[in-house]
């Protein structure tokens, strides 16, 4: 992108952390209130894309802890493993296993929540994989 807006850059600097925290908030509360891994992932992806528009796709990639394709792989693996865990207990694939005591802040933790984390990561990964590549190849 040729001309960058200073206004947008300043706004993004404040908005991005907020959006990311919000996305994680959506992910965690998803099991009981409105939200979930899918929406959370979309919000996080939107946050990163906003950053890419304000700065540059390259700068956004530098901010990512993992490249989008790796995010997809990690997310899918987490989702799959969360289902496999039940097999070790002799239960069918994807039977939910829950911790007895809820953790502080996060709340009750169980394999469906871990599965949701996997969904969250895959959604971020796919969105960024497509959008960042499109944005980078722009002429």
């Amino acid at each position: 992108m040729k001309a960058r807006s200073m206004l947008l850059q300043v706004a993004v600097a404040y908005l991005m952390p907020l959006l990311l925290i919000f996305s994680i908030f959506l992910l965690i509360r998803g099991h009981n209130e409105v939200g979930g891994g899918f929406v959370g992932g979309l919000v996080a992806a939107a946050a990163f894309i906003l950053h890419a528009i304000a700065e540059s796709p390259k700068a956004t990639r530098a901010h990512l802890p993992l490249s989008p394709d790796k995010l997809i792989a990690v997310g899918l693996s987490i989702a799959l493993l969360s289902g496999v865990l039940a097999l070790f207990q002799g239960n069918p694939f994807m039977t939910g296993i829950w911790l007895k005591q809820p953790l502080p802040v996060i709340g009750k933790v169980g394999t469906p929540f871990i599965f949701d984390v996997g969904v969250y990561l895959v959604v971020i990964g796919v969105c960024l994989h497509i959008l960042l590549n499109l944005a980078e190849d722009e002429r």
């Binding site: 998803g30 099991h31 009981n32 209130e33 939200g35 979930g36 939910g96 469906p112 949701d116």
Partner: peptide
């Protein structure tokens, strides 16, 4: 399933 959000 220990969750109140039926959709999720």
């Amino acid at each position: 399933a220990q969750g109140r959000n039926v959709v999720n």
